[in-house]
Design a protein around this nucleic acid. Structure first.
Lengths: 151, 151
DNA sequence: CTTAAAGTGATAATAATTATCAATATCGAA
DNA sequence: TTCGATATTGATAATTATTATCACTTTAAG
């Protein structure tokens, strides 16, 4: 029995081909941060009969079952990616100039920092770091512009 | 000359009472994470003639001038808070049960972790950590529920 | 005080998401 | 295998957050 079916059965939910397809499509795009409508378009390519409402119902459901990660970058829509367990957290580098998003695979919180968090009367289950800056190409453009101004 | 007026003049923008009021209202609510419509309601209390469009125009403008911080928690709307400079970053503890948001004032990235970031060919200007878990009261409720099940 | 240009309020238009509902599909039990 | 309770779906209306438009007003430089 597939992992998806197990999770669904535990909650009295049913396995439908629509849910399987959504899982497959997101799984095929590891490292991407897909919005709901992007996922809708990808799913339609192979299964044009699927409805947008089903996408919007399925994604939060898969997220609650920890089969997908929900991420809110700063562009005004919810995005999803393949699930990453706590032990191998990953984070996002957001370019403030072009909006590109890169992944950082390292665990970014040191031992001391994690202790600080534990002291906060809050049981931490996970964390996500958003790093803001300029990617290589945008950083170059910025320094070129400065040169021009300096001439 | 007020700080707001200075920032505006630098960019050829004008000082209006509407912009002043928005700054004041957000400033009066330090530690809060206000959505655009919440800010609209607060502003209307003292200045009922202000339009919603002005709020939506003013907030991103104040953010770009680094007079406000924009934050995207995971509830589907943009929120703003008083500006906090990089040197005293603060982060957010989000309760996965009740949705409460608490602030963490410490710098959460250790020296070693910051070095990792620098090695990423990305010039980092700032970062924000979202911590997910359960606040004290929700954590208690969860452990009570477990006891009941165990009986 | 004039005046060009920035800014505003009202509101129409979009975009993302949620709710509704009749029709369909799933899955445990007979 | 069939049956039936009910979970699920697709289509679409409704909502919510945000952006665009435009005629009128305000700001601030001269």
């Amino acid at each position: 029995m597939t992992e998806l079916k197990q999770h669904l059965n535990e909650k009295g939910l049913r396995l439908t081909w629509q849910r399987q397809v959504v899982m497959e499509v997101v799984g095929k795009h590891k490292g991407k941060h897909l919005s709901s409508s992007e996922i809708f378009e990808l799913v339609k390519e192979s299964h044009p009969s699927i409805g947008l409402a089903t996408i919007y119902r399925t994604l939060p459901l898969l997220e609650k079952m920890k089969l997908l990660n929900k991420i809110c970058l700063d562009d005004g829509c919810v995005r999803y990616e393949s699930y990453t367990p706590k032990e191998q957290e990953h984070h996002h580098l957001i370019c403030m100039a072009c909006g590109a998003v890169y992944e950082v695979e390292q665990d970014l919180l040191g031992i001391k920092e994690k202790q600080i968090i534990r002291d906060n009367h809050f049981s931490i289950k996970g964390y996500m770091v958003k790093l803001y800056g300029y990617c290589e190409s945008c950083a170059e453009k910025k320094s070129e512009m400065k040169k021009e101004v300096a001439l």
